[in-house]
Nucleic acid binder design. Structure first.
Lengths: 241, 241
DNA sequence: TCGCGGCGGTGAACACCGTTAACAGTTAAC
DNA sequence: GTTAACTGTTAACGGTGTTCACCGCCGCGA
């Protein structure tokens, strides 16, 4: 990329300051949730004036977006590290690892999780928010699960509904994504999507406190659900607890 | 309740003003999302000064909480009306009606849905937020689904995992809720919870834009999922599309 | 009927927010 | 060495939630 050491002293200084800003924003996020991440608060955190931050981010929202992208990357890296942490684990074991890891991360960082996966801020400007760094980071995150499921299917195809059972409209949309899903048949993509939806709903309900009325500790429930999913994918599941 | 017409003229005036305030807040919510519902903005909407609202609500957060409770009630009433709208529908048909109705309401009112079911605002004050009107309204909402599932089970018990398959910890938590679930066995409660989680995750993903990467129109996907759930509950399902 | 207490409203003020403008010091480039 | 860009400042604007002191008016009891 940068021939002849394109990075001057100022460039390095600048990158360091950007990192400092995002670190301060992250700290405020974990301490006080999204509303605590204010431009002035971040500036105060590192002894700067609020307008100084405009040298590094176009607006408050740009800072939040950068923070979101960073959080996606951090989560993705953590899941990849977790997936590769046990060399003896087969593909199924890896899937269980990252599913549980996602839940653990969400429970340990509820504010960050809400920022990434909760109700998005209504953003009238960015109508088509493709190609934004946050979106790309989100795709990179999703690919971790997608790739692993595709590998599982490649190694040992799991039972899935036939194309006739999906209905023409859904079938069309799913076959459109076949290439992205490593050539999996539409029924298998449908099943993968189903299980991803279940995992997402499970974690969202727990983190957002939507499960308190039924279960005070959703850990066992989560394990049971994971067990179900693993069984349907033809994996040899770890016994629940 | 109120003997000897406990409501004076002023009380009625007050109640009317409270209703006006909440209506204005609701209008701002649908127009500009949660951040648009400001104390001053609401006051401006009805030609009042901002401090005047403190005669009716202790704080901005109290207003939002009251709005949440109202939204729960509105959603609950809408679902009940929908459930009873088709006299010819059996219990299964009613379940399909309100499940689809919940999704339709969420898609038609994304801001409200995010407020009710999305990431909650970190609220350091209300550590134990039981007994708050919002919580009670949420329970009333949940009971619509719970009661209907219990009725379905009472009429025709659906297949469910045996107690041994649940694991001791989960089993204990579920049997604790047996009374609330009309005496259903733990396995049936577990299944009900599973399907509620799936419905919640499905709608959240769609409303929060977490499904755009895979499906541009999640309607067919939702119908297919509903079909699966209905089949598992032993209902005669409407053919998808 | 009079008086009084409280309810419902006001404007001013405080502290915070995001954002812009005008300005100054440092640093890099030509 | 001059110049331009970069990085920071302070001041200011309009917005927010909230509190305070004040004030008129309605409704109740004597």
């Amino acid at each position: 990329m940068d021939l002849k050491t394109g990075e001057t002293r100022r460039d390095r200084q600048r990158a360091a300051t950007v990192a400092e800003i995002k670190a301060a924003a992250r700290k405020l996020l974990v301490e006080g949730g999204v509303p605590a991440v204010g431009l002035r608060a971040v500036a105060r955190e590192l002894g700067l004036s609020a307008p100084a931050l405009y040298r590094y981010f176009d607006s408050h929202e740009a800072l939040i977006s950068a923070l979101i992208a960073d959080l996606y990357d951090e989560l993705t890296d953590a899941l990849i590290a977790l997936r590769d942490s046990d060399p003896g684990a087969d593909l199924g074991g890896q899937l269980f690892l990252i599913a549980g890891g996602l839940r653990d991360w969400a429970l340990a960082h509820p504010a960050e999780f809400g920022l990434l996966f909760g109700a998005p801020v209504p953003n009238p400007l960015a109508e088509h928010h493709e190609l934004t760094p946050g979106h790309q980071a989100a795709m990179r995150f999703g690919a971790v699960f997608k790739d692993l499921v595709a590998k599982v299917y490649r190694q040992q195809p799991f039972a899935h509904p036939p194309e006739e059972a999906l209905g023409p409209e859904l079938l069309a949309q799913l076959t459109q994504k076949a290439e992205y899903f490593d050539g999996m048949p539409a029924g298998a993509i449908y099943l993968s999507l189903t299980y991803w939806t279940r995992l997402y709903g499970l974690i969202c309900m727990e983190v957002f406190g939507q499960l308190h009325w039924a279960l005070e500790d959703a850990g066992a429930y989560f394990q049971a659900q994971l067990f179900e999913i693993g069984e349907a994918l033809g994996l040899d599941c770890p016994l629940p607890e």
